[in-house]
Design a protein around this nucleic acid. Structure first.
Length: 765
DNA sequence: CTGGGTGCAGTTTTT
DNA sequence: CTGCACCCAG
């Protein structure tokens, strides 16, 4: 199909004309393409159309195109759009039907690494178990020397004092916090978590472990511990997300990897001709290396799209420098002669012109943001779509003169929350918005203690809330009752429980038991099951495997999972299963239980935590070690991590509810009315992710010094954080802050101080 | 506006 | 167990 025809059809269908900037990106022929896309500039649309152009106008083999995104959700969204647009094109030109766009490799880099290595049966990735975050934590808890129950203290104490920023925080498990002044090690779960962060970072930042090892002192210890962790992963045929990418780099060096990139003139292996990357500002060093390798053949068709002002994932190794210095990277990896010119997409089609102006002036009001090296050199200002009003009215919106960027205050946070809820209620009652889901409250933490006041204020006005990331799954009755039931069976006399020293673990188990005893009162069948299960264990001799209840003719070993599934077949669990939300919560719990039971543990290959045994000396009681492990490991994990409610993959927010979201959750989304809370943050602390980045930077395979001090980068991160929040708004942006926050002129108010802020923003109460 | 005493609450995100 | 936020005195 002719490119011109194709664009005409797509423009007719979408009712929107592509801008010259967008056309430049879509029609770019060969070589690296560096797209600096501001918020709301239609970057995903452009990426999708460029893909269509490659496959349907240039007839690039779909299998030779790789398109990566940051999340699975975004990948699915792109696949849907590709299929939709392709259907239009097929109508116009039936000969295109033979072009199968589902062959384009669309996904997160992680999922593509996994799929491609499976497809090519890469030896180094055959029969490996891919560990998710929970699995990785349990694995590290069991296998890493850093997380051992009794590690060599003289060696490890200095290490934890060096990396104290990873462990000196409040520990929910023990109920107190560790600091470097202590002469004992941090709690095992704190060390586990920190070990996970360290190991992931070593891989993602491409740290030269041998060089680290040669440093002496704690860094030598760290290098050794990393190597033994990596070795344990291998010997147990496990692979975490970070090593998935490392293995992929190894794969690319293997013969089949070379065939994957270069192709072999068959349609099965066309080679890689185009690599397109979305959200490139959040790419980390190992991912950058993968992309440069994938596109490493002339003419180096690597297209990266992102916004250096929206980098949000430093904790995951995300490095804005990859985006800012993409030209240098291309010259280093490809050739000095390659032309790499930044292509801006600088018109914002999403937001009211006032919101666009506010966002643009906000980001440029900070000296650390306009300094050289903070953003892509020569980045143009974000500009509003001159037809915004006209287009919205054509869509049926009634726009008057209203405060499109404004702030709400109150004496204290409670009053702010009340005013916020009143505003939402007014918007609903005067018909400005037809559904609460057209608003969103953005805030750093969506945990109960941060958003409680806002939730309560909405609740009082009968406005339902959607907040799946509140880490409150463990507060739900069905989850608590199930866990309480398990404890009742495993530890009927609470002897194991009474010996626990960790307050956090004891408290949570007691709360589960309390929930369970409430539930069991009205459900005699459940009570009876618990009694029978307890009885069975109590009749088992010492040091024996407990066998399943004789519901079947043959008795077989009982496992934790079986007891759990058996138990939840009784009321009230059976009725609860009719409720979709409760069912998915229980599924989340089941998954954690399965993980706990199936993560391999050292020195006993093939055995599982799940099969119940009696104690070596005490007949009729669950093995003390097993019970203790259940408490320390599984319950400890639940206490230290918390669990989120499962989320619907398709729906952003169910209708009828007002979403409360973290800024990360809202990334890439847009809402008619955006409320941003706690805008007055003043103290900019250097977070653990930044300190670790600095500590490991000298050992990177390719050391790229940052032109900014650590403190400056911390500030930039905060500024970008609010920039992402602010740029979500379509019709109106409302900043929330109480009197004291306003007096303080925190970073969310802009870098020129309060007077500047008040010139740009209207007060509405 | 500063300084010290008291009291409460406790990071955040993704694969 | 810390650290910060807040309050009141100077």
């Amino acid at each position: 199909m002719d490119l011109h025809d194709m664009l005409t059809i797509l423009e007719q269908r979408s009712g929107r004309q592509l801008s010259q900037e967008q056309l430049d990106v879509i029609t770019h022929e060969t070589g690296p393409l560096w797209v600096i896309a501001g918020p709301g500039s239609g970057k995903t649309e452009v990426l999708v159309i460029r893909c269509l152009k490659l496959a349907c106008a240039d007839f690039v083999e779909p299998r030779a195109i790789i398109l990566t995104t940051f999340t699975d959700k975004a990948a699915k969204n792109i696949q849907d759009r590709l299929a939709n647009y392709k259907a239009y094109l097929d109508q116009a030109d039936p000969s295109l039907r033979s072009v199968d766009l589902s062959q384009i490799r669309v996904g997160t880099l992680h999922s593509l690494c996994n799929d491609i290595m499976q497809e090519y049966r890469y030896r180094g990735y055959q029969n490996y178990r891919l560990l998710d975050e929970i699995d990785q934590l349990l694995f590290t808890y069991e296998h890493s020397g850093l997380a051992a129950s009794r590690p060599p203290q003289t060696l490890h104490l200095p290490l934890w004092r060096t990396f104290d920023y990873l462990v000196s925080r409040f520990n929910r498990v023990t109920g107190y916090s560790w600091s470097r002044t202590k002469n004992y090690l941090p709690h095992r779960w704190l060390r586990t978590n920190a070990a996970k962060v360290l190991f992931n970072r070593i891989v993602e930042d491409r740290i030269d472990v041998n060089q680290l090892r040669a440093q002496g002192g704690v860094l030598t210890t760290l290098a050794g511990e990393y190597q033994s962790y990596a070795h344990s992963l291998e010997s147990n045929l496990c692979c975490d997300f970070a090593h998935l990418q490392l293995k992929f780099l190894e794969f690319l060096d293997s013969p089949s990897g070379v065939r994957f990139i270069n192709g072999d003139d068959t349609s099965e292996h066309p080679g890689i001709h185009h690599v397109l990357v979305d959200e490139y500002q959040d790419t980390n060093p190992i991912q950058e290396e993968i992309y440069l390798r994938l596109a490493g053949r002339e003419p180096y068709n690597l297209c990266v799209v992102g916004d250096d002002d929206q980098a949000l994932y430093r904790f995951r190794g995300g490095t804005v420098e990859c985006m800012v210095n993409f030209d240098d990277a291309c010259h280093r990896a490809f050739s000095d002669d390659v032309e790499v010119i930044p292509q801006p997409l600088s018109t914002n089609y999403r937001s009211h012109p006032n919101v666009v102006d506010w966002c643009d002036e906000y980001i440029r009001s900070f000296s650390v943001m306009i300094a050289e090296g903070a953003r892509v050199a020569g980045k143009p200002n974000l500009s509003a779509d001159p037809n915004w009003h006209q287009n919205r009215e054509a869509e049926g919106a009634v726009l008057g003169d209203y405060p499109s960027v404004c702030f709400l205050t109150g004496q204290d946070e409670r009053q702010v929350a009340e005013n916020f809820a009143n505003t939402v209620q007014n918007l609903l009652s005067d018909g400005t918005v037809s559904d609460p889901s057209q608003c969103v409250l953005l805030i750093k933490s969506t945990r109960e203690n941060s958003v409680g006041l806002y939730q309560a204020a909405l609740h009082d006005r009968y406005i339902p809330v959607y907040n799946p990331r509140s880490r409150t799954l463990l507060d739900q009755v069905e989850v608590q009752a199930a866990l309480g039931g398990l404890v009742s069976i495993l530890d009927p006399n609470r002897t194991g429980l009474s010996q626990l020293r960790e307050r956090g673990i004891r408290d949570i188990i007691n709360s589960w038991l309390a929930s369970f005893s409430q539930v069991v009162q009205n459900n005699p069948a459940l009570e009876d099951y618990i009694a029978r299960a307890t009885e069975r264990i109590s009749q088992t001799a010492a040091n024996q495997t407990v066998t399943q209840m004789a519901t079947q003719p043959t008795e077989f070993p009982a496992t934790l999972q079986e007891v759990y599934y058996h138990m939840i077949s009784f009321e009230p669990f059976a009725t609860w299963e009719l409720d979709a939300e409760r069912t998915v919560r229980m599924a989340t719990l089941s998954k954690v239980l399965e993980s706990y039971c199936s993560v391999p543990f050292p020195n006993s290959f093939g055995s599982t935590r799940g099969s119940l045994r009696t104690d070596r000396t005490a007949p009729g009681q669950i093995n003390t070690g097993q019970l203790n492990h259940f408490y320390q490991s599984l319950v400890g994990l639940l206490v230290s991590e918390g669990l989120n409610d499962p989320e619907d993959e398709e729906v952003i927010c169910p209708p009828g509810r007002l979403p409360i979201m973290t800024v990360h959750q809202a990334k890439g989304l847009e809402f008619p009315f955006v409320f941003v809370a706690k805008v007055g943050i003043q103290q900019i602390k250097i977070g653990a992710e930044l300190q670790l980045e600095d500590a490991l930077r000298p050992f990177r395979v390719s050391v790229v010094p940052s032109p900014f001090t650590t403190q400056q980068r911390a500030e930039q991160d905060y500024i970008r954080f609010f920039y992402v929040a602010y740029s979500r708004a379509q019709y109106a942006l409302v900043l929330l802050g109480h009197a004291r926050e306003l007096a303080r002129q925190g970073i969310g108010f802009g870098g020129y101080g309060r007077r500047w802020f008040e010139q740009h923003v209207q007060r509405v109460n």
